[in-house]
Write a protein that binds this DNA or RNA. Structure first.
Lengths: 223, 223
DNA sequence: CGCGATATTGACTACAGTCAATTTCCGTGG
DNA sequence: CCACGGAAATTGACTGTAGTCAATATCGCG
């Protein structure tokens, strides 16, 4: 999941390859709360999220947790480094994914289209991580929360009369661990955004964005 | 540049391909302070740093700067996303690099060894950026500075009687922008490390690490 | 409707940032 | 080789943002 947006970084949905059955990813189902893989596991497959949302996390030895990214439909996850996974991956809700052999990334596995699609996804992932670094290094708490909601709104929100609605499948604590904050600080930022008229809550997990422009401005730190 | 270390993530020095002259990178020279490329430039080549050190940076519209990474000898830099550079790259000291055609990454360009080496470098870069995210999201100022010095010490330091010496080609302000801190906070962390007997300074740019174990502990937050 | 989990709010603390004053470094020229 | 001067680094005093700990409030599931 990207943290800033450009016209170019939208993921491609649907099967990655124009070719037939050999390369089309095998559907995989992961129930909410179940792990798809864990840090240190050997990478056998890459996945494209089809439905649902997954969470990629890393831990420090003393238990501090960082959510590295959330995997939304279209996102490719599971890139190896030295053959192994470097994050845990579990599902926030019931999730289906397309699985691709790891060799499709390395050698192409006889499918150049798939090979290229996976490579480009890896390169976009580098850029996405750099965005995240920029955000964590240089943005305030309010800017981080606004950036996060802004991306979700634009990429995954749905229109509801004149506003935009987004469902948050993750807890405040997940958001905090993604943004390098605490749950309390995330909560306070939500309150600030509500009081500024940017958004309102419809239950704890549903956000109605009333002023997307203002949200984008706050994400960029113009307020 | 990685921010945590494992046995596996050491870059490969020297030419990336076993093959002959076609794929061997063309040497490129960049003087200290000169740019190799800028954000938004079309990516024509990837580079492996041979000698010297480069700096990859991103800016927010309002001028806030984040140093994304430092490129040390062996590191591969210049990965495209959607065909373009997403950082500025300039040299901290006179630097030489091997240049590879961008197509060597996409198609292999007739050299499978080079193709694979570049791909693996891209995958390691994802992991390195995730490390950086973890550090910025969840480590204290002292831990960040200690982590930074720890990696430099182990990867690029040289033995000097019983200690280890490292030369810092970057300013305090570069370190601050890399670690998401201010120059003052970096300076205070250096002072703390000196007073704890972990290291001493030999001029502003040369560090003598007197207790590498303690440094590693402080990097992990065990103090 | 009730209960446990999750989220919010409040009061206070602390870590890192800001602004300003030295000090040190280090390249240049005498 | 030393002295000078501008830049970089360090230190100090103070502030502010986000963290901590604790008390409600709300959610959403059975």
């Amino acid at each position: 999941m990207y943290v800033t947006l450009s016209a170019e970084n939208r993921p491609v949905h649907g099967p990655l390859s124009a070719r037939g059955t050999t390369s089309a990813g095998l559907p995989t189902l992961v129930k909410a709360g179940q792990h798809l893989y864990r840090e240190g596991d050997e990478v056998e497959r890459l996945y494209q999220v089809s439905n649902g949302v997954v969470r990629l996390t890393r831990m420090l030895e003393d238990g501090r947790r960082q959510v590295i990214s959330f995997g939304y439909p279209g996102d490719i996850i599971g890139f190896p480094a030295d053959g192994r996974h470097h994050t845990d991956c579990d599902a926030l809700v019931d999730t289906t994914l397309f699985a691709y052999r790891r060799t499709a990334l390395d050698t192409g596995d006889g499918d150049p289209d798939l090979h290229l699609a996976l490579l480009e996804a890896a390169l976009r992932e580098i850029s996405a991580m750099q965005d995240h670094v920029m955000m964590l290094g240089r943005k305030s708490a309010l800017e981080r929360v606004a950036s996060f909601l802004n991306v979700l709104t634009i990429s995954y929100g749905e229109d509801i009369d004149t506003h935009r609605r987004i469902d948050l499948p993750m807890s405040r604590s997940d958001i905090a661990d993604f943004l390098g904050l605490t749950t309390e600080t995330v909560s306070r930022a939500f309150t600030t955004l509500r009081k500024a008229g940017v958004m309102s809550l419809d239950g704890a997990q549903t956000i109605v964005v009333r002023d997307p422009c203002l949200l984008a401005e706050m994400a960029a730190g113009e307020d």
